[in-house]
């Protein structure tokens, strides 16, 4: 009797774990597939105004501007192709948010075509380079980076 109960509990636990795993995977896939936009996708096939989506791309250099209120930041997110989506965000920027590096913005498209972000996540690239390189001028750093970061297509 006791053994039977134990077996039952184990089977149920295993089933819950498997179903949970499947649901998590499906949830993640759904999130990725229909709610993640690249800038070129957002321009070609924009989501409905007000629908919660994610926008992922690169912060275009020279576009980050602090507004007069001191808390709202505007910048442009670009993708691989020649595309640009203006983004507005009011809040605390993550420490790794920088011009020229990756960003994932969670929010919604406003009627004027600006992406209103509730949350900004900084995306790191696959390169790990010590801080010393940052003190060199850009040309040197690029040279050095090319030598140390092999394998990026």
């Amino acid at each position: 009797m006791k053994a039977k109960h134990q077996r039952l509990v184990l089977v149920v636990l295993a089933l819950i774990a498997l179903v949970g795993a499947g649901l998590l995977a499906a949830y993640a896939l759904r999130n990725q597939a229909s709610y993640f936009y690249l800038p070129e996708q957002m321009q070609a096939d924009p989501p409905q105004v007000g629908q919660a989506v994610r926008l992922g791309g690169m912060v275009a250099p020279g576009t980050v501007e602090m507004q007069a209120d001191g808390i709202t930041v505007t910048f442009t997110v670009t993708g691989r192709e020649d595309s640009a989506v203006p983004v507005r965000f009011a809040g605390i920027l993550p420490d790794l948010f920088q011009e020229g590096s990756g960003v994932v913005a969670e929010g919604r498209l406003a009627a004027d075509g600006t992406f209103e972000a509730d949350k900004l996540l900084a995306k790191h690239d696959e390169n790990y380079v010590p801080r010393e390189l940052q003190d060199m001028d850009e040309h040197q750093a690029a040279e050095m980076a090319r030598e140390t970061t092999i394998g990026i297509e």
């Binding site: 993640f36 992922g56 994932v104 380079v129 394998g151």
Partner: peptide
């Protein structure tokens, strides 16, 4: 799936990680 986690730094015979790391 394009998302937050960066692509692999170390693939067959290649590394985008500086030697000190």
């Amino acid at each position: 799936w394009n998302s937050l986690h960066q692509p692999p730094s170390i693939t067959m015979g290649k590394s985008a990680i500086d030697g000190v790391f």
